[in-house]
Simulated scan of single mutants.
Amino acid sequence: MDGLALEELNKAIMEGNEDLAAQAAGNALSLGITAEAILRTISVAGNEIGKLFEGGDWFLPELFAGAEAMNAAVGKVVPELEKAAIQPKGTIIIGTVEGDVHEIGKRIVCAMLSGSGYRVHDLGIDVTAEQFASKVRELHPDIVAASAYITTTCQYLPEIARALEAAGLRQDVKFLIGGAAVSRGLIGWAGADGFGENAAQAVDVANSLMKDLEGS
């Protein structure tokens, strides 16, 4: 029965059905399946979605639908994780940089990170460097993720690193950048620690950065 319930959850996510994904996650919880097992199923589905997208078999509409279904399922599980005091893999704050109001890509990344076991705080769009620093001071995250979707807003990426440095917070976090206007070549210029070309890569890089933090 447990296996069937988790199969239904996986199927709903892969079909991009938010309502069924939330229902399947809730049903799994009602059957006594642990929040960790449900989250693992969501993560497996997320990995498969990432592979399909990177392999060119899925495109943005499918990726977005799958990510939203993951988000719906995670929403059912998070309260149980909090009640059981289960520790997330890490805490990430994420936002689109100052002057940039693009959000769809960031929402996909948020869903993929949440589905992979991270506690994600979405700061929204048009987030200033000072707002990033303020949230780091408030929430003590492991990773700060910033996205820029137009070339003219990339200039604000290094400002985030400088704001964290000025506040004495830079050494406490890893800085991850991404977005349509960002490339791997900007990592050093932006003062970042990693770059995610898409949502699936963002999860992989976040996992790598967490290992760096744990080893430091």
Rank of each mutant, 00 (worst) to 15 (best):
S43D: 11
I177S: 01
V44S: 08
G46R: 06
I160H: 00
R119V: 11
D2S: 13
G16P: 14
A206E: 06
M70L: 14
E8I: 06
S114L: 13
A111G: 01
Q171N: 15
G117N: 12
I86M: 09
D142L: 05
V205Y: 03
N198G: 12
S147E: 04
Q201H: 12
Q171K: 15
A190I: 04
W189P: 01
A24C: 06
I93H: 07
A206K: 07
G90L: 02
A5N: 08
A25Q: 09
A190V: 08
D19V: 14
V77H: 04
I108R: 04
S216W: 09
Q87P: 03
T153W: 00
I143A: 06
G179D: 03
G168D: 09
G105D: 14
P158I: 04
G124M: 12
G66A: 12
H102R: 10
K174F: 06
D100K: 05
T41M: 07
G124P: 04
L4V: 15
V44L: 11
C154T: 14
M70W: 08
A85M: 14
E165Q: 14
L52M: 15
V44A: 11
I104R: 08
E138T: 11
I150V: 15
L213Q: 08
T151S: 12
L123E: 03
A35I: 02
L20H: 10
Q201E: 14
A146S: 10
F64D: 08
Q201N: 08
V101I: 15
N71I: 05
V77P: 06
S208F: 02
Q171M: 08
K135R: 14
I150Q: 09
V109A: 11
V205G: 03
V120Q: 00
E138W: 03
S43T: 04
S43V: 04
A167L: 00
A73S: 12
H102L: 10
G196P: 04
M70Q: 14
K174I: 05
L81C: 05
R162Q: 09
N71A: 13
A65F: 12
A181S: 13
E80P: 00
S116C: 09
W58K: 07
I125Q: 02
I108V: 15
A200C: 02
S216C: 04
G55A: 11
R40W: 07
I150W: 03
V74T: 02
K135Q: 13
I92M: 12
G55C: 10
P61G: 12
G99Y: 00
G215C: 07
G75A: 10
G66I: 07
K76Y: 03
D2F: 10
L176M: 13
G99N: 08
N198S: 10
G168M: 06
G115A: 07
V205N: 05
A166I: 06
A25S: 07
G55N: 10
M14D: 04
E138I: 04
I13T: 12
R184S: 15
I94S: 05
V203Q: 03
E15V: 07
C110T: 11
N27C: 05
I150P: 01
V182Y: 02
L6T: 08
G46V: 09
A85C: 09
A190E: 00
A73G: 10
G16V: 14
F53T: 10
D2I: 04
Q155W: 05
L209R: 06
R107A: 13
G196M: 05
E18P: 02
E7F: 10
E62P: 03
A21P: 05
D172W: 02
F53C: 04
R137Q: 13
D142T: 09
E68C: 12
G191Q: 06
T96Y: 07
E36K: 15
